[in-house]
Simulated assay, not measured.
Amino acid sequence: MTADRWQRLKNEWGRRLQPGEQSVVIAWSSFTATFAGVRALTHWIHDGHGPSSGGMSLGGHHFHHYNIGIAGLAAIGAVALRGHERHLRHPVTAAAYGTAIALIVDELALLIDLKDVYWARQGRTSVDAAIILTAVGATVAAGLPFWSHARGALRA
């Protein structure tokens, strides 16, 4: 992408979306990318391409990535409660929020059933599809004031 197109896209982003709307688009985009990436990575590991332990381990115990998501939300909560105003809608804060939520949602069945059913067949494919469609749909919906103008900025 040329510098001129990038600048036009950046201008439309600032003109069409308020800071809160920008944060929502960034958070949903981060959620979508993280969820898809974690799904792909866990399937790759499960298929025998990753660590022989099947994932992360601490002290000989499997470490679920929802723990990282919970820690991330705790940190974002601390920023919201005690951080400076400029951090509240910062793109990094929004991206971290989306990432943390994706790490938790990816292992939601474990949290609901309180047993490790991550690789159980029942409903896993439909849950994955529903969450991915929700994430993509929300990203599109959150950015509605921007997308048509983005397309125009990139064409010009």
Rank of each mutant, 00 (worst) to 15 (best):
G60I: 00
L73N: 01
M56T: 01
R82F: 15
I70T: 00
L103Y: 11
A74G: 12
T99M: 10
T99H: 05
R86G: 07
Y66F: 15
A75T: 01
H46N: 14
P51G: 03
I76P: 03
G72T: 01
H90L: 07
A71D: 02
S57P: 00
L73W: 01
D47H: 11
G59E: 07
V92N: 06
I68L: 14
H62P: 00
V105M: 04
H65C: 02
N67S: 09
H87R: 07
A71W: 07
G50S: 11
A78I: 04
H64Y: 15
G60M: 05
D106W: 12
H65A: 00
E107A: 05
E107Y: 10
L110Q: 13
S57C: 02
L58Q: 01
H49W: 15
A74S: 12
G98Q: 08
A71N: 01
E85S: 13
D47M: 12
G72W: 11
V92G: 10
H90F: 03
A74N: 03
R89V: 09
D47T: 07
L103E: 05
G72P: 04
H84L: 08
R82Y: 15
R86Y: 14
S57N: 10
A75N: 02
A95T: 03
A96L: 15
A102V: 11
I76L: 15
G54I: 03
F63C: 01
H61Q: 11
I70Q: 00
P91G: 11
I70E: 02
L103V: 04
I70G: 02
I68E: 00
L81H: 06
G72C: 04
A95R: 08
G83K: 10
R89Q: 14
R89A: 12
A78Y: 14
